[in-house]
């Protein structure tokens, strides 16, 4: 008769020892897809750390240049408060404009049939990436200025856009829209076509399918795009100063205020800069959370 293995009879000590041995063996095994460190990786780390230090030092200096008391006190100054309020108002309005006009376009580009001139549309949507903001500001003046292509007709109706708060919103929307549309388009393109088709066969028309299925599915990507567009709008400088000017309380956003008060009130400039950096890091954190959710 053959002896069968019976776990209850196994010698406890022996069992324990063999398992510990297996553990040690596993701990020694290197991860399968990494090679041992070479002189290349050492060199890369050394040079790379220099870049990291180069990026980190200025940020650190900014925070060290102002004491917490003076940081808090700076919020009492009109120039800081007005710039903060104006930036918040204008950038959120720009974001609203971008989302309302950008979402339908992004969806169409992602799901619609190819059309003639598609390449030109793509290029136009990448314009803010490749042109300096100052060029955008000049272009906006040529279009909506008093003598501009559209501006002269607006002037006849008594509408003057340049050097107004509306101009700030326009400059910010111009610079931020590309970021939103690109991200939103990718998000819509990633929605499984089979799902939208099944939705249609189940009796949901194109509008219902868009609002109940595609929009919620693409939402993380839309939020990522909106955050990027908002960051871009908040940081907008060149187009704003050319097209909207630099008037405290009317068109002087945070970046413009930093530039303006730098020489006479360093604390105010530093305070605004720190607020912008904190908002930026807050957005980065939000984006990384969303990316995790996406993957």
């Amino acid at each position: 008769m053959m002896k069968r293995y019976d776990p209850s009879r196994a010698v406890p000590g022996e069992d324990h020892r063999s398992r510990a041995g297996a553990d040690r063996h596993q701990a020694l095994r290197p991860a399968p897809d990494t090679l041992p460190a070479s002189s290349l990786s050492v060199a890369e780390w050394t040079i790379g750390l220099m870049l990291l230090l180069f990026l980190f030092l200025p940020v650190l200096s900014l925070f060290l240049a102002v004491t917490p008391q003076r940081f808090v006190a700076a919020f009492g100054e009109d120039v800081v408060r007005e710039a903060l309020g104006l930036s918040l108002r204008t950038s959120l309005m720009a974001l609203m404009v971008i989302v309302i006009f950008g979402t339908p376009l992004a969806h169409r580009l992602a799901t619609g049939r190819p059309f003639p001139g598609r390449a030109a549309v793509e290029a136009l949507l990448q314009l803010p990436w490749i042109t300096p903001p100052a060029v955008a500001g000049l272009a906006l003046l040529m279009a909506f200025g008093r003598e501009g292509l559209v501006g002269r007709y607006l002037a006849e109706w008594g509408v003057a856009l340049p050097f107004s708060t509306a101009a700030v919103v326009i400059a910010q929307a111009f610079e931020g829209s590309a970021f939103y549309v690109q991200s939103a388009r990718q998000a819509f393109a990633a929605v499984d076509r089979q799902l939208t088709e099944v939705s249609r066969t189940l009796g949901a028309g194109p509008w219902r399918t868009f609002f109940r299925l595609e929009l919620p599915t693409a939402m993380p990507g839309l939020v990522v795009g909106a955050a990027m567009a908002w960051a871009r709008a908040l940081g907008e400088f060149g187009a704003t100063i050319l097209f909207a000017g630099n008037m405290q309380g009317v068109t002087q956003t945070m970046p413009l205020a930093i530039y303006t008060v730098l020489e006479r009130d360093l604390d105010a400039a530093l305070t605004l800069a720190i607020v912008l950096i904190l908002v930026g890091f807050g957005l980065l954190w939000l984006l990384s959370r969303l990316r995790q959710k996406l993957s």
Binding site: V198, R200, T201, L202, G203, P206
Partner: peptide, 8 residues
């Protein structure tokens, strides 16, 4: 498709 009453 949404007005065909099809089971797909």
């Amino acid at each position: 498709p949404e007005r065909r009453n099809v089971g797909y």
